[in-house]
Design a protein around this nucleic acid. Structure first.
Lengths: 339, 339
DNA sequence: GCGGTTAGTGTTATCGCTAACATTTTCACT
DNA sequence: AGTGAAAATGTTAGCGATAACACTAACCGC
């Protein structure tokens, strides 16, 4: 490239020259330093405007040692739940004046998770949010590079890290008790895959509610969160339609599969079998029948996790070990009825 | 903090000292420079390992003037389509060795879009992908800071920017012709909101298919992509059930709402009315009845957009004005039948 | 009117790395 | 052994910002 052909973007020194001050004064104006005369400030501001100057955040990050960027590690982010969580995090971070750098994992294993975290740490993020509701992800925090503030969303409340999560156990209890209150003798369960903390929490809440009421606890059917796995479970439930009257399904997508299987087999919902889901995805209200479910407030989880993280960054305490639990909410619709 | 209390992380000079070489040699090892003796290389690598050194990417970005980070601007990323597109982009970027910095917009307007783009440009991203399928977003590219490579996904093929998109028009044609081939006299349409390019493309494909076949074109009903808006449209269609026999709905979520409304009103699908959706969300197969729809290959869109973007970055041509169109695919299920 | 504060500004050093150039070592070939 | 090119390594100078400190001018009180 010939000189002059490509005009590189102006730097602070260019602004300084144009305004007739030193670059440090430009820096002071940009950082709202008090000791700048009003007249000087406007002169600098005019020069900035004139040249179209934008400050180089990379250079700034090098010397200040913070980037105003947060790292987020996610998993399966095309699903409604994870997508909403990440969205909530992103919104909250931006509201707090932070950028978000994002890594989405294909599979969760300790190695992949550690890579992702190092990846972000290398990039100079000020803190990390890990959305990884799997048991195997927990250990990834052990290798966190020297004291980067971090918070786990839907993670294991173990070790050195703060955790923000929805009260899965209580949500499952609400679902189960709702069905028991309708007069069902017991409640079957289609669970999420093993190793997932949310799946485990929902199993625990369901089991506890049954045991508290002194009811028998059927063996749970296990799905993988997908509608198809719900469909498979639904076929098995349909085959037992004479003894099954109520089912708590660990998420709405699987509940859709269950619904489909029951419909196909001529089992009426809710007349013969009542169904409760979990998540309250936007579609749930328009299932046939509209799905009774448990709502998770993903926005609150996102805001909460950023709150905790920024507090850690602010205090310099990398590991605050806070616990924030967001309540789950029962949503009544038409997929459940009295026995 | 007392000295020694907080040991700051090692820098290149520390590694150099430990290995008995200059920092430049360490840099060469890290960057796979050819002119390093094998024995020296292993000595440096050992020192790196010993000290747990990780290079500072911020300092590196300052001098190299590129960050190996791509910016992504998204919108409504809790919906399946946008979420899948962003996911595809993220995967493709990471496969190419790039980080992804992400901004999700609440609403699309030129100003907000421009802010987001400047936000990313300031951060030093090497290129930008904008997923903004709205007409109003197109102008945001006009103000792109001096020649940052950019590509629009599902954007308007106008102006200076490359565009990658699914062939919406052809997808809609496929849906409409399928229904016509089944013997339906005409096909109604529940469209997406105005201002959305995808909505417009699908209307165009539908309208063209009808006109080509010499059929009357009913006035489209307009939704906002949500199941609820589909439900509202479905109520109106149910009221006209004697003249409506086939409906092409612009996305699967609205199709679910339509299905729900028709079911509620006792209109049988597909016996009385055939329905075709768009997107092929994972749930579509388990609707009642399973939804015939048009599949979009979001992974291909993501990969394609990163391909184009990296090519622009590689050649230094900020604006290549490429056009990449990903075909749509027809998926037959049970929500359509012959008249 | 002079020491002492305080606002306002400039100068220099530095963050941790790579680029460019300088220097030394190695080694093939006469 | 001597030469010259190539390979391997070192030294210096930035990248573009902020931090730390130095300096000047204005103003205070006695």
């Amino acid at each position: 490239m010939r000189p002059g052909t490509e005009r590189r973007s102006p730097v602070m020194a260019d602004v300084a020259k144009a305004a007739g001050v030193s670059h440090q004064t430009v820096s002071r104006v940009l950082n709202d330093h008090p000791n700048v005369r009003a007249e000087t400030r406007t002169r600098v501001l005019e020069a900035i405007d004139l040249l179209g100057y934008r400050r180089n955040l990379v250079a700034r990050a090098l010397v200040t040692r913070h980037s105003r960027t947060l790292g987020v590690v996610g998993f399966n982010t095309t699903l409604y739940g994870p997508a909403s969580t990440v969205d909530g995090i992103e919104q909250a971070a931006r509201a707090a004046g932070y950028f978000v750098s994002f890594v989405s994992l294909r599979s969760i294993d300790t190695a992949g998770m550690r890579d992702a975290i190092e990846y972000l740490a290398d990039q100079g993020v000020d803190g990390i949010v890990v959305v990884a509701p799997q048991r195997s992800a927990a250990r990834a925090f052990d290798s966190l590079p020297q004291g980067i503030p971090a918070v786990a969303v839907e993670g294991l409340p173990v070790g050195e890290v703060s955790v923000v999560s929805v009260d899965q156990v209580d949500g499952a209890r609400l679902a189960t008790e709702h069905l028991l209150n309708l007069g069902h003798q017991t409640v079957w369960h289609v669970s999420g895959p093993s190793g997932w903390l949310e799946a485990e929490g929902r199993i625990e809440g369901w089991r506890t509610a049954l045991e508290t009421a002194g009811r028998p606890t059927p063996e749970p059917l296990t799905g993988d969160w997908s509608p198809r796995s719900g469909y498979v479970a639904g076929r098995r439930l349909a085959a037992m339609a004479d003894e099954v009257t109520a089912v708590f399904v660990a998420n709405d997508q699987m509940a859709l599969g269950v619904l489909r299987a029951l419909t196909e087999q001529g089992v009426k919902v809710p007349e013969q079998i009542s169904i409760v889901g979990f998540d309250d995805i936007p579609e749930a209200e328009f299932f046939s029948p509209p799905l009774t479910t448990i709502r998770q407030d993903f926005g609150a989880v996102g805001r909460g996790s950023i709150d905790v993280l920024l507090r850690q960054i602010g205090t310099g305490e990398a590991r605050l070990r806070e616990r924030l639990v967001v309540p789950a909410e029962f949503v009544a619709r038409a997929s459940t009825s009295a026995l």
